[in-house]
Design a protein around this nucleic acid. Sequence first.
DNA 1: TAGATTGTTAATCGATTAACAATC
DNA 2: TAGATTGTTAATCGATTAACAATC
Lengths: 211, 211
Amino acid sequence: MRGTLNKELVIRLLKYRRILTQLKSLGFEKVFSNNLGDAIGVAPALVRKDFSLLVLGGNKRGGYNIDYLSEQLGLILGKTNEQKIIILGMGKIGTAIAQYKGFLQGDFEVAAGFDVRPVGLPESLSLKVYPIEELAAFCNANSIQVAILAVPEEVATESHKLLKDSGIRGILNFTPVELKTTPNCIIHNINIGVEIENLFFQVIRNGLSGA
Amino acid sequence: MRGTLNKELVIRLLKYRRILTQLKSLGFEKVFSNNLGDAIGVAPALVRKDFSLLVLGGNKRGGYNIDYLSEQLGLILGKTNEQKIIILGMGKIGTAIAQYKGFLQGDFEVAAGFDVRPVGLPESLSLKVYPIEELAAFCNANSIQVAILAVPEEVATESHKLLKDSGIRGILNFTPVELKTTPNCIIHNINIGVEIENLFFQVIRNGLSGA
DNA sequence: TAGATTGTTAATCGATTAACAATC
DNA sequence: TAGATTGTTAATCGATTAACAATC
């Protein structure tokens, strides 16, 4: 059954989990499908369908129990508490991501950074940056499976190869080079430049039909 | 007709354009639908359908003319050369994005940064950071329509409101708070934490079925 | 001509939503 | 009971792909 969880569904489940955590911290105990639908921008029916698919039941009048949902989603999505990632390329972007506050919500940790040359990090950050030569050994020793790629465009392709050779199974790619998912390494590309261009296009289009 | 350009299609067109630019710089003159399909990860038929929809013809045996495609896509997508964006929140992420090399490909420019307090930037960067109070005036004076939001989570919501009040029509949101698109302000959310969690899930799932 | 590629239609696939019966 | 919400089915919507005729 879990094999049927598609990408969109997993994204929704991750978002549900985050919202449930927030609701819980506000002291809520129950939530309705339309609350969750509003929060992540889908129809209430889809929320119910998602939970139905996962055999997570609610109460016909009382909605869903937040603690229960939270716990079950944790089981399905897996605890990422002890998951560790590495960052290849500790330039501006890599360093910024390493210090990204939003990561504190997600229950994973940046284990180390790697770069061709030593990088000066603030003392406050308990993160070490190693030379690239140590990447494979480090990943093996620490069972690292997921990496963020934040190197300059020119070395994106060779860095990609290096990560695969180091046993990395998933890469969040911030370089403008569009990398391809292969059977044993999943790629998610985030191309900020394309995102901005896309936004410009949508805004200009939107302007024509709007006020 | 242009009103029918949906989000996925626009993304593909932006990617085609980037690839065509690269091919042109390599001295290529012709390209086939399967080349472009491979490059962006879709079926060749979809590439042909896209061009067909835009009335961009190819040659039954000789493929598509790169110069022509490039030029036409430029007309459809619009020149973003003189487009300017601003960045609200010049912490680590904002500062890193301001210096993002990948932006050099995209033909737009970061006009200014804004923050609650002065930020020290490298001299090499010809970018000024202004106090938040000047945001609305600056956006008006310079007709800024698109912004990157990179403030801390705690002030994401109020910053969002500030941007809308400053006449911003499109926001690329890097905070973990999921903002909602409204009729006169388009939001694209990039939640790095969720992206990483998603990658972990996919990798673990993938591991079960793989080697 | 033979071969290759476009252009286009029909089929497929899949996700989302609308609607409503079930029921607490 | 009346009202509200779940759970589920059927309908809708839309994007992608397969397949092939047209044709250079």
